[in-house]
Amino acid sequence: MSFHPRMYAAVQGFQPLGELKSLSLDRMVVDYWRVRGRAGAGGRYASLHPRFVLILDDRRLSLSRARGGAAEPAAGCYIPAGLEIWGTLPEAGELRHVDIHLPRSRLRELTEPGTPLDRPVILPDLGPLAPLAGLLSDVCAAAKPSAPRGEALARAAVTEMFHLGRAGQLGHGETWLDTLRAHVLDQMAHRIAIDDLARAAGLSRTHFNRTFRRATGQSPYRWVLGLKLGYARRLLVHGVPCAEVAQVTGFADQAHFSRSFRAETGAAPAHWAREQAAGPNGPIVQDNPSR
């Protein structure tokens, strides 16, 4: 079923770099933009439909809900239908971003019951959404875009935006374990060494290992693996291919990911995903973000 997003924007200071790349999916449109902006470029935006924005290359916009209001740094955001947002580019340069537009009815199908769709979500960092945004931009820019691949990546990005928003509301950064969890999410696509975790916690490696085991009852390696596989499960149920899930979650290759996943769940990733999709509740997995 086709869907045509409608958005109002009054912006200044941006120059397009190439043509807009769009991908039409099942009641959803993904746009990939490349623009150059001067410092302070921006304006106001309002959409008749829910909209997600994922900014690539570790860039950010400053967003506020009123002209001259308090601004928040945003690497990614969910903007509810009809909400006017003011955005400013703090530093001059190229800005690449992926936008996902969809009607509220489609968004409700993708999200967990009770998700507040009238409340914006603003993420100062994309964390594990960064590699998903990169893959989505690749699909949009491809000579022959793959709609099934784009559909899977877009669905995963939508649900993960709300997952990360809930995780932030639980107080990430308030304790050393929250700081570590935020570090793992931010570095999800990379190998995470124990020494890196110890430095993030401000402890020596020996003291860190003892403290961590007392606090969690498991080794740092098993804890990190659990976070990575929890994220992998959320991607798999939306149809993201195993090779890309392995890439996004920082495993050495697909074989390494498949072995780790089978050891954790007792099933191969593709088989597990098919069973989840065929279940009575459909393909939505909402892990506890405080895990």
Results as ranks from 00 to 15, higher is better:
residue 190 H to W: 03
residue 241 P to F: 00
residue 205 R to S: 07
residue 214 R to T: 12
residue 152 A to F: 02
residue 91 E to P: 10
residue 35 V to T: 09
residue 69 G to W: 01
residue 115 T to G: 01
residue 10 A to H: 14
residue 226 G to S: 12
residue 269 P to N: 13
residue 195 D to K: 14
residue 109 E to I: 08
residue 279 G to I: 04
residue 63 L to I: 15
residue 118 D to A: 11
residue 140 C to D: 08
residue 147 A to N: 04
residue 85 I to Y: 00
residue 289 P to G: 09
residue 212 F to R: 06
residue 59 R to W: 05
residue 65 R to F: 13
residue 25 L to D: 02
residue 63 L to R: 10
residue 208 F to P: 04
residue 98 V to S: 09
residue 231 Y to N: 07
residue 198 A to H: 01
residue 179 T to L: 11
residue 129 L to P: 03
residue 131 P to D: 06
residue 3 F to K: 01
residue 74 A to H: 03
residue 110 L to P: 11
residue 170 L to F: 14
residue 280 P to K: 15
residue 271 H to C: 00
residue 66 A to E: 15
residue 177 L to K: 13
residue 122 I to V: 15
residue 48 L to A: 14
residue 147 A to R: 15
residue 214 R to M: 11
residue 97 H to W: 14
residue 246 A to P: 01
residue 172 H to N: 11
residue 222 R to F: 10
residue 57 D to I: 06
residue 96 R to K: 12
residue 112 E to V: 12
residue 243 A to H: 14
residue 225 L to H: 10
residue 118 D to T: 06
residue 146 S to M: 01
residue 127 G to L: 09
residue 220 P to L: 09
residue 104 R to Y: 03
residue 36 R to C: 12
residue 14 F to A: 14
residue 244 E to Y: 03
residue 280 P to H: 15
residue 146 S to D: 03
residue 187 Q to F: 08
residue 100 I to S: 02
residue 228 K to D: 02
residue 101 H to D: 11
residue 208 F to E: 05
residue 98 V to E: 09
residue 36 R to N: 13
residue 118 D to Q: 13
residue 20 L to W: 02
residue 195 D to H: 09
residue 207 H to F: 10
residue 184 V to R: 04
residue 252 A to V: 15
residue 213 R to Y: 15
residue 275 E to W: 00
residue 28 M to V: 07
residue 168 G to R: 14
residue 248 V to G: 03
residue 143 A to R: 10
residue 225 L to E: 15
residue 146 S to P: 02
residue 91 E to K: 12
residue 221 Y to I: 05
residue 70 A to W: 05
residue 95 L to H: 05
residue 79 I to F: 04
residue 3 F to N: 00
residue 51 R to G: 00
residue 150 G to A: 09
residue 219 S to Y: 10
residue 53 V to N: 11
residue 255 A to F: 07
residue 165 G to C: 05
residue 239 G to N: 09
residue 192 I to C: 06
residue 75 A to I: 00
residue 21 K to P: 00
residue 276 Q to D: 03
residue 140 C to G: 08
residue 285 V to T: 11
residue 47 S to T: 06
residue 145 P to D: 04
residue 254 Q to N: 00
residue 166 R to I: 08
residue 175 T to W: 04
residue 28 M to T: 12
residue 236 L to K: 06
residue 151 E to L: 08
residue 266 G to P: 00
residue 251 F to V: 02
residue 116 P to C: 02
residue 7 M to D: 12
